[in-house]
Design a protein around this nucleic acid. Structure first.
Lengths: 388, 388
DNA sequence: CGTACATAATCAGGAGTCCATCAATAGTGA
DNA sequence: TCACTATTGATGGACTCCTGATTATGTACG
């Protein structure tokens, strides 16, 4: 939107950008003719632009195909391996660092188990070691990273400070930006974990391409996140999707219906829900009642968000979403009386790596803003110069 | 974002755009030197661009100022009168059509009183006559309009169809797009009235420049609208801000606390609220209790939206906002127990023209997209050619 | 094996836009 | 009337893009 004209170099820069965009979003490599058609530029100009991009290391040539009529065309692809980003999930039970290339493909990862009682210092230490391991596995140094994003439980404000945490006793106020920034000299973003999971689902998962969605994290600690107009909605102080704080939704205690159900027997709290969902699947009356009660309260908070935003889709993520076959129909039934139109509800597909994946997506978004947007400066690439 | 390179004309187009943007957002007229500084272009290029725009009728020259040192500079301004848009408020009690220029200044308006029982056909007829009157007053013909937007009660879907109305018995399903389009040959947008009021407040009113806000329409029929990331949030089916549909908020009946309060005496329902707010202002216990009860329920729905979105601001509009001195503190108190952070709350400032003004803003946004955005085509202006 | 055909790459000429520079112009103030 | 100041106007050079013609490199077929 804010494109601000300029001189001839600027025009060349814009055309380089269209070419890179075309190559990035294309399925496979493209010929010069295809690129000309895609960008609307003439053939001669495309040749100029592409040779320039090739020299600067942004794109690579691919073997031409044989067997067609006429002279085989040179083919070019975007060099997704020209740079890498790091996505970090700082969870309650694990720390997962994941290196991806510029196309978002996972290259390597490092994972360290922790638990709810791991003290702050040790958890931060685990972050450093997981990052280290992922970098070693990918054969990269911190200097090769173009961006980093990390997800943490709790409310994360605009400055990257964790302001409010329930799951971890000593985690509030932790300066993740500072801790990670000490080790990695590149742009860093900190974000709430549910928000990153939502982003991952919208980019790579079950909500691919959906512009407005509500992500529900169903688990022992419920959460929610919003994607509005294709973008993560952060909110003024980072506290979006916190409808669970309203007492009348009953979100704070609703997991108790599952954990204290007779169907759970005397299983440990973190195993109870799975048992109850299993029993409900088998038709157990107690279990069905517990799921019904849980869904009733989940629906109260969900309805508040759905009625507010009128989203296209609701995505069910988090631990309990493994039992979506039981939970999803119950939730839909419980939503009916509240909503004008109950949106489609889909269970998450990305599994337990979704937060780290979402973090990588966010880091890639920042890279896009810096290098691949008209406001950015592909003409003066900071990192890729080192390719040459 | 989607700027797609191109040839030399394209560059000129982008530079024309920056110049027009600079002139539009400037306080007064600008000299060529100021324009060069603003756009980053060289002096010579600015001369080219500006003479071109001048010939095409987009800008006008103003008298040079005398009294300064050196040769007096030519000064140019954007011709806000190069085009006009129309904003229409199709309300329960009135139809208001308002002609504004491209800067959003009201040029003329037409207004026709109706009431809740006016049948559909007559209300549509009133729309036509109000538009006619506004155009006559402005000295324009339908061909001079570059865009129209109209606001109606009820849920408005993406196709401009009014799908769900409570206030007007026979209004559901009305084809406003068709009715207006028959008379006015230009792009037309239909939108919900509260949404337009919210937009007006964000552009011209008390929320100027705020990116995320919740607009509360407090009146006999409550409503809400959202502005997210600086843009009106329409939602998948147009039904955003409908938290009042949740029974537990009590929005459907909360106006009853005011209308049936002993402090209202036996005033007519539409006058009761004003009396009660007045009595509350004077300290009457019954009235205070009624306001408290009203605010309690208003806060339930508001909290749902605030917790979902974490907006920077809540704007209080609609009829009851005239009593914001009483209602606003009560609402803030009632929100406290629900919210992490109670956002700032401000009463609306635009008065009863706000829906029509918001409609004009929306129509202007569409004009901006068509003419003044990189995706648009200022190079091939449809309407302004007729200036010459 | 050689020729016809199809597609791609390359090159040259021409046009449009922007920039830097310098002289000319129109005011002010002594 | 004469300096001083800031703007205007004009010229040449550099860059990018487009068009059209020419050359290169593969397949198909007699």
């Amino acid at each position: 939107m804010q494109v601000s004209g300029g001189d001839l170099q600027r025009l060349r820069q814009l055309n380089s950008l269209s070419s890179i965009r075309a190559l990035r979003s294309a399925r496979g490599p493209l010929t010069l003719t295809e690129l000309a058609a895609e960008t609307g530029l003439s053939r001669g100009s495309i040749v100029d632009v592409i040779t320039d991009l090739h020299e600067r290391g942004w794109i690579a040539e691919v073997e031409p195909t044989t067997g067609g009529m006429g002279r085989p065309a040179k083919r070019y692809r975007f060099r997704a391996d020209a740079g890498h980003v790091l996505g970090i999930d700082i969870g309650v039970n694990k720390v997962l660092a994941m290196v991806t290339d510029l196309a978002g493909r996972t290259v390597a990862s490092g994972r360290i188990a922790v638990d709810q009682r791991t003290p702050r210092h040790d958890r931060l230490e685990a972050v450093s070691r997981a990052v280290e391991a992922a970098l070693v596995a990918a054969g990269l140094t911190p200097l090769d990273l173009w961006g980093v994003a990390a997800g943490s439980t709790g409310v994360v404000d605009r400055e990257g400070l964790v302001t409010r945490v329930q799951a971890l006793p000593d985690w509030a106020g932790v300066d993740l930006l500072g801790h990670i920034g000490q080790r990695l000299p590149c742009p860093i973003t900190i974000e709430n974990d549910s928000k990153l999971a939502a982003l991952a689902e919208q980019r790579l998962g079950v909500a691919a391409g959906v512009r407005d969605l509500v992500y529900l994290h169903v688990g022992r600690r419920p959460g929610a996140a919003l994607i509005i107009n294709g973008q993560l909605h952060h909110g003024f102080s980072g506290a979006t999707g916190e409808v669970g704080l309203m007492e009348i939704t009953g979100w704070r205690a609703m997991a108790g219906y599952l954990e204290t159900s007779p169907a759970a027997g005397d299983a440990a709290p973190d195993a109870a829900a799975g048992l109850v969902f299993g029993a409900a699947r088998g038709g157990d009356a107690d279990a069905l009642a517990a799921v019904e009660a849980y869904a009733h309260h989940l629906a109260l908070g969900t309805a508040a968000m759905v009625l507010t935003l009128d989203p296209e889709l609701v995505v069910l993520g988090g631990g309990f979403s493994r039992s979506a076959d039981v939970l999803l129909p119950a939730l839909r039934r419980a939503l009916e009386p509240h909503c004008l139109r109950v949106p489609e509800i889909r269970p998450s597909t990305l599994g337990e790596e979704c937060v780290a994946l979402g973090a990588a997506c966010l880091a890639l978004d920042r890279v896009d803003e810096r290098f691949f947007s008209p406001e950015g400066s592909i003409s003066r690439p900071a990192a890729p110069q080192r390719l040459a």
